[in-house]
Every structure is written in C-alpha cells, then in structure tokens.
Nucleic acid binder design. Structure first.
Length: 673
DNA sequence: GTTTACGCATCCCCG
DNA sequence: ATGCGTAAAC
C-alpha cells in the first residue's frame, strides 16, 4: 500500500484524501496530475470502493493505459478497472449492450472519419451538389460543420452563424444533408465517432432505468483533461454522477487547445457555478521545468484574461534562460536547430530527449531536409495512422461486411477493389444485398454482365474463405489475406511486401481482441496506434522527435525547440478569426514551452522560401517580458529591402514537391483569403 | 451505359 | 499523395 503522505506533496494529498462531493482539480503543467489521479484511485480502492464503482475517463487510449498500469503498480495486483478508458471506449461498451434500445443492431459498425466523409460525399452527390453549379462547402467542410454541431450541442444555425458565416445562404441545404447523412448511417447500422457520444447521451437521458443503473453503480466519477471536454461529454459525465455526485474533474484551463473539435474551456471555468458545492484544489508545484522556463511560461499565460489565475512554482535549480533565435530564412532556422541539437548531444543529451515543436505540420519541411542532410535520426509524430492506411482499411472492410452485412460503406470499399466493378455496378449489388436480407450472398440474383460478374465471383470466393475460417478476427483476416488480396496488392502497388507485412501486424493485433466486433471497434478507435513499424526496427536508435504542439501535449523533453514563431504562422491567422481564438493560440504556446525540462529554444525566420516575407516575430514573443529570454541573431545579415515592396507580386511558394501555389495572391499571404 | 486512364487541382491549422 | 472531371475504351 502506498504511503500517501510521503509520496505526495500536500496539494496532491489533499486531493487524494478528499471525501465525497464534486471537486475540481486545477493541475498545472508538470504538477503530477497523473500521479494524483492514480493515487486517488488507489485510495478509493483502499477505502473499499469496488473497481466497477469507479468511472475513470481519459482523453486518449494511451493515458488510460498508463493510468491503469500505474494504479496496478500501486495496489500491487492484477486489478481490472472495467470502466477506465476514453469516452469513446466507455460509450462503445454501453452502446453494444443497449443498441436495440436505440434502434441499432448490436453488431453495428463504427465509421472512421474517412468513412463518414465518404458518406457525406454521397449525400452531396445525391443533391446534385458535386458539380460546381454554385459555391458549396466541400465534403470535408460539411463534415466539420455537422460534427461540430453535434459535439457542441448547439443548433446548426448557431454554429453556422458563429463559425461559418460564409455558408449562411446554404443553411437549409446543410440541415437537409445532415439528415440524409444520419439516415444513411442508420440504414447501414453504423455509427460515426460523434454518434458514440450522442447516442450514449440519448440512451442515458431517454431511458431513466439505464441511467439509474449506471449512476447508481458509479460511486466515483473521475475525468481527466476536463478542459478539453465538449458539451456532450460534459453532459454525459453529469448524468453518470447524478446519483452520488462524486464527480472529480482534473484539468488545466491554461491547456485547453481543442476548440476546433468543439471542446469548450467554459466547462472547466464554470464548474463551480455548475456544482456550487464543489471544492477547488490547485496543483501549482511543477516538477518538470527549470525556473527560467517557468517564468517565461507564467508570463505567457498571464496575458490571458479568461482563466483561473495560477502561478507555477519550480522545485528545480535554475539552469539557463530560454533562447530566442532570429533567423534570416527557413534554412538558417533549420541549421540553427540542428547545430544546437548536435551540441546538446555532444553534452550527452540523446536525440530522443529532444523535440522540435511547431504550430502546423508543414512548418517542419525545411527542417526535415536539413535533418536528412545532416544524417540525424528523427521521428515525425503524425502522418497516416496505422488503421487509416488504405490496405489495412481494405482488409477491415471485408471483416466489417462479414460482421454487419448492411454496412454499405464497407461494401462499397470491397466492391471497388474489383476490376470491372465501378460505382454503378457497386450500387446495384449493394441495393440487391440490402433487399435480400438473410438470403446467402451466393444466391442473390444480380444479372451482371461478364466483366463485373468476374469481379463479383472473386468477392464471393473471399466470402467463402471467411465462412470456412474459424471466424475469429485473426481467422477472418487470414482468410482475406490468403485469398486474392495479395494478388490485388501486387497488381496495384510496388511496395506490396510492406503492405502485406502491415496486414500480418493487423492479424497480430487481432489476436488480442475478445471477439470480432470488439476487434473492429478497437481498430477504429485507436487514435494513435503506429507501433507496428517502430517495434519491428532491428535496433533501437534514439530519435529526435518532430511534432505539432497539439500532439506534444502531455509529453516532456530535456530540450524543446519551438520553431516558426513568426507573425501569421503562430498565432495562426485563421485561428485568430475565431472568437476567443487568440487566447487559445496563446494557450497553445503555453503548452509548447511547458514541455521543456532544461532547455527551451524559440526561433523564427524573417523570410521563408522564395520571396516570401514573414510577418516578423510572433506577437507572443513581443508581448512577454524581454528579459525572460536571451536573444540571438544569425551571422549572415541579409538585406531585405528588396522585399519591402511586397505588393501584389508576393507569392507564397513552398519549398519543394509538396504543393506550391502557382497563382499569385492579390495581397500578402498574411491576409489569407 | 460503365469502367478506366490520365491530367490537374487540392490537400495544410490543429486530432 | 489523393481525388476529381474528362475523354477514350470496353
């Protein structure tokens, strides 16, 4: 059993030993938040609370795994916390059981965001909106509008007025598309990510008996990262704790950075209003960063007004002031970063103890070129997730139709893989299957001509192989892979060997799942699983981390570089147009600097690429106390006078392959049309 | 009528 | 890299 008073500081201890009732824990960056939660759980268990009486909601799967692991270490046994996980995991578990109450079959499919976008494309096409008759938002934008609306709990009109005023004239059409989209999903017995939350809320609010059952069971509700919850999540949490009122939320309003997916800082700020009897605790002792870094961080966040005032205190000895490096251009910024990294490595800081952070993914392009040139191993956090790779999704689509024959989205994917079957034939086959109901696939009359018929036969062969398998997730994947899929990959892609290896990894992952639906759900809900290729590396090699700031949240490194701190880039121009956008950008900067333990380097280029004038230093650099960092300038002083007449000739050109824009923009790119 | 091949725009703010 | 619109091929 842990020795609480010895292993926790007084602030943390107070939270852990808090009795009953609502409770808000404002946990600053690096203040031992995870530690506090895990000790709290251990404490509750020690008080005789049963594992199934604790609901522990986290933001990511990784956080859930880590907390479960650490609680296990504390209580020293193979403890099972059945209700610890992300909102989506918990929702899935409940929805699976109560699907019929909501009009779903319990074998419902889960659509990932690409699937859902494809359905929206169909809806748009149906309305004749695919042609550019009149300007209409793209499928991606429509998806964003619908998703945001559902998560923030406001009417569509409000969301469009606030966030998408340029589409106000299409408001009725958008509403109609949202309806069509919803209906298509329902017909396919499928839920998208938002449905997982919306349907759970429906289940609890419309079925008092179900709500009572869970609310009675959950004597203690704990929510991590509460500053990033959206309206529907916050409502769900409220329902779960409606009987015992033992709701403990942990978060840091200063790190609320997910408003683009409807997270709202107001939930944490208004917690006391919502739960008037709430006790508030603050964790302000920071175990991560030097005082030099924290002084800068505190000064950054002090510029925000909509927040709980906090002051992080360091317990570490001073080290060095943060550095601000003003660079002539992107290449020099990259060189500077690489030079510093090599110098630190020389001092014994290995590459994996350092990270370069940036506001937007493409900011790292110039740096990556330099890293390749200088032969520095790095890993880019981001890119296509394992379960979103095309070939993985192909195989999953076969498994999905096997589990849920009405999954038209998966069917469409399966059919389009066949040569000879295009959109028209696919549609015909899908509607035949839908109306056929329980009739075996092979018996369905389709009346196809020769070429499509051949493709269909191949699908049937794979289906039969799945029928003959042991029907476990691993067996089904094997059946698909052993059938014609390898040939298909071979015919389509030169790198088919790598792709087949991924599918082996998939089969391996499938071995861990309870049953096939569980496997499919896990696969779709694993937001950050990319382990396959990393684990199969022959030798472990420490790598420098490149990451967006969003992805860096919750992590820490010995040395952190925040690059591209130029006006227009960070704060991001588009983000500034949002209401309360500036404060969120500032929080993002705060998140970035609080990742650093010992060394913090800030940098920005004056020009980037060819003839592109950056906007000078970020306002975040200008507004803070200039004594809090050491400013350095590059050696090669350049003459920028030729750029000052940046009239309508200024062109935004990115450096390489990616996608350079050939069109001239009417004004500086900073205006961002 | 359907499918496929090919050129060109677009994806990039953030998960 | 991917996704689309268009035009040739089945």
């Amino acid at each position: 059993m842990p020795n609480y008073s010895q292993e926790l500081n007084p602030e943390q201890l107070a939270v852990v030993e808090h009795g009953d009732g609502p409770c808000l824990v404002l946990a600053g960056a690096g203040s031992g938040k995870t530690r506090t939660i895990t000790y709290r759980v251990a404490y509750l268990l020690e008080q005789g609370v049963k594992p199934e009486e604790i609901l522990l909601v986290t933001f990511t799967n990784k956080a859930a795994r880590e907390m479960i692991f650490r609680v296990q270490q504390l209580v020293g046994s193979q403890l099972y916390l059945p209700w610890a996980g992300t909102f989506h995991h918990i929702a899935y578990k409940m929805l699976k059981k109560y699907a019929p109450l909501l009009g779903y079959e319990s074998n419902f499919s889960i659509l990932d965001s690409e699937d859902s976008r494809n359905v929206i494309k169909l809806c748009l096409k149906e309305k004749g909106l695919d042609k550019k008759i009149k300007k209409f938002p793209s499928a991606r934008v429509v998806q964003g509008i619908i998703s945001f609306t559902r998560n923030c709990g406001k009417p569509l009109e409000d969301v469009i007025e606030d966030q998408y005023p340029q589409w106000l004239q299409h408001i009725d059409m958008l509403g109609s598309i949202a309806k069509d989209y919803s209906q298509r999903k329902k017909e396919a017995n499928a839920m998208d990510f938002d449905d997982m939350l919306v349907r759970l809320f429906e289940l609890l609010s419309q079925n008092p008996r179900v709500r009572e059952l869970f609310a009675q069971q959950f004597r203690y509700v704990l929510v991590d990262e509460y500053q990033d919850t959206n309206a529907i999540q916050s409502a769900i949490v409220g329902l779960f704790s409606s009987v015992h009122k033992n709701i403990l939320v942990v978060g840091d309003d200063a790190q609320s950075i997910y408003s683009f997916r409807a997270a709202d800082i107001e939930h944490i700020l208004a917690f006391e209003k919502h739960y008037p009897s709430a006790r508030v605790f603050r964790l302000e002792v920071n175990y991560r960063s030097t005082p030099d870094i924290l002084s800068l961080a505190n000064d950054v966040i002090a510029k925000n007004t909509n927040q709980y005032k906090k002051e992080l205190r360091s317990i570490i000895d001073p080290h060095v002031k943060p550095t601000l490096r003003v660079c002539a251009e992107q290449a020099e910024e990259a060189e500077f970063i690489v030079d510093e990294i090599l110098a630190l490595e020389e001092e014994g800081v290995s590459f994996d103890k350092m990270a370069v952070l940036f506001r937007a993914a493409f900011h790292s392009q110039a740096l990556e070129m330099e890293l390749v040139k200088r032969d520095i191993p790095y890993e880019y956090r981001g890119g296509v997730r394992f379960f979103e790779r095309a070939h993985i999704k192909d195989v999953l689509a076969y498994v999905r139709i096997f589990v849920n024959k009405t999954d038209t989205i998966a069917w469409s994917r399966v059919l389009h893989m066949q040569v000879g079957i295009g959109p028209a034939t696919a549609l015909r086959i899908i509607s035949s299957i839908q109306s056929a109901g329980e009739i075996p696939l092979a018996d369905i009359e389709l009346g196809l001509s020769a070429r499509p018929a051949m493709g269909w036969q191949e699908v049937l062969q794979i289906w039969e192989a799945m029928e003959k398998s042991d029907k476990t997730a691993t067996g089904l994947i094997g059946a698909v892979a052993d059938s014609r899929y390898e040939e298909y990959l071979m015919s389509q892609f030169p790198d088919y060997r790598d792709r087949m290896q991924d599918i082996e990894q998939l089969a391996l992952f499938a071995g861990k799942a309870k049953d096939v639906s569980q496997f499919l759900a896990e696969a779709t809900m694993q937001e950050q699983f990319r382990a396959a290729e990393q684990q199969s590396e022959t030798k472990y090699e420490p790598k420098l981390v490149l990451s967006t700031i969003h992805q860096a949240k919750g992590l820490e490194w010995h040395a952190v570089f925040v690059m591209h701190m130029a006006q227009g880039q960070f704060p991001n121009e588009r983000a500034l147009k949002q209401t309360k956008g500036l404060e969120e950008e500032r929080r993002l900067f705060y998140v970035a600097v609080t990742r650093a333990k010992k060394n913090l380097f800030l940098s920005y280029p004056i020009v980037a690429g060819y003839k592109m004038l950056m906007g000078g230093p970020s306002m975040f650099l200008q507004e803070i106390d200039q004594d809090l960092f050491e400013e350095q300038r590059g050696n090669n002083d350049m003459d920028y006078s030729h750029l000052s007449d940046a009239d309508d000739g200024v062109v935004y050109e990115s450096l390489d392959n990616g996608w350079s824009s050939p069109k001239k923009r009417p004004t500086s790119f900073l205006m961002d049309v």
